[in-house]
Computed example of a mutant assay.
Amino acid sequence: MKSIRRLLILPLVALLTALTVIACAGGGQPESNAGNSGTPIRVGSKDFTEQFIIGEMYALVLEKAGFQVERKLNLGGTPVAQAGLINGEIDLYPEYTGTGLLTVLKLPASTDQQEVFQTVSDEYKKQFNLVWLDPAPMNNTQALAMTQEGSTQFGVKTISDMAAKASELTMIGPPEFEVREDGLPGIKAAYGDFELEAYKAVDPGLRYKGLVDGEADVAVAFGTDGEISAFNLVLLEDDKNLFPPYQVAPVVRQETLDTNAGVADALNALAPKLTDATMQRLNYEVSGNQREPAEVAKEFLTQEGLL
């Protein structure tokens, strides 16, 4: 009987051992991660609210796809993030098409979204061996905002209207807007050499408070700022098409894509979800409601079925 029992047990032990080896070898990794290089993908971002949120989203969807991720968020401005990509200190970060065109490539402005994307995509590949993945529909373009009451009071709906009434209006915004080519000098070149009643230079975080508190009539804005929807503000129409599009997209090192199959698919699945209204809402969760960017990003991705 002992011999028979031994003969029955040995095959069972062998079977259990084989199943254990197979389970360990599988490691629970998704199929999309079959081409993983085995080293963490380093996700960077610039140093403001929207970048923190989108950078965290990129990290989360890559982790969901089975990749190891190292977060390097809050790096600094465009030159720092761009240098990090070129030097191999990061593998990807969210960038804006208009910023790529004007700030990095230093090419003339264009208001055609497809043309701008194609230009930055081609030139980044040629000059830096960097790849632009799918752009989101959101457009974080430079803008000017007024309260509903102020817009009605002054009869201002477009930047042309504002230029015509400029002598009656106080504008509030960051100090550099007075001198940047895509700030007041650029607006004056396109819309006429108007003179404001005053320009109130403040820290960027105080623009909207000054506007809604009545300290100014017009605020320097960006298209996806959370305060636009939170305060029901009017974005003045850029009726002479001065400002280029600022769609956001992941910019990725080519070698990262070559050694990590599935990175592009994971990130491109997120792109269509990021609209102006969505980013305004998410940005305000952080800037207005003081929530953590990582919490806001995770909640949104979960709601959208991406986590």
Score class of each variant (00 low, 15 high):
Pro79Tyr: 06
Val104Gln: 02
Pro30Val: 09
Leu15Ala: 11
Thr152Asp: 14
Arg180Thr: 05
Ala164Leu: 00
Thr103Tyr: 06
Asn268Met: 01
Met171Trp: 08
Val218Asn: 06
Ala18Phe: 10
Asp265Trp: 04
Val251Phe: 01
Leu107His: 09
Ala230Ile: 09
Lys72Asn: 14
Glu31Ala: 13
Thr256Arg: 08
Lys209His: 03
Tyr284Ile: 06
Ala216Gln: 04
Gly226Phe: 00
Asp193Val: 05
Lys2Thr: 13
Ala271Glu: 13
Gly223Gln: 04
Thr170Gln: 02
Lys125Tyr: 15
Gly76Pro: 11
Lys106Trp: 00
Arg5Cys: 03
Pro175Ile: 13
Leu282Ala: 06
Phe67Asn: 01
Gly28Val: 12
Phe67Ser: 07
Lys64His: 07
Lys64Leu: 10
Thr103Gly: 09
Phe177Ser: 03
Asp47Glu: 13
Gly155Met: 07
Leu235Asp: 08
Ser110Leu: 01
Asp213Phe: 09
Phe231Met: 05
Ala164Gln: 00
Asp112Lys: 10
Lys157Val: 04
Ser167Arg: 11
Gly214Phe: 05
Gln290Pro: 08
Asn268Tyr: 04
Asn129Asp: 12
Leu10Gln: 09
Pro11Glu: 14
Val120His: 01
Lys157His: 15
Glu255Thr: 13
Ala277Asn: 09
Pro293Cys: 07
Glu149Pro: 08
Leu10Ala: 07
Ser110Phe: 04
Ser37Ile: 11
Asp238Phe: 09
Gly192Pro: 03
Gly66Ile: 03
Lys165Leu: 04
Ala249Arg: 01
Thr147Asp: 01
Leu267Phe: 00
Leu62His: 12
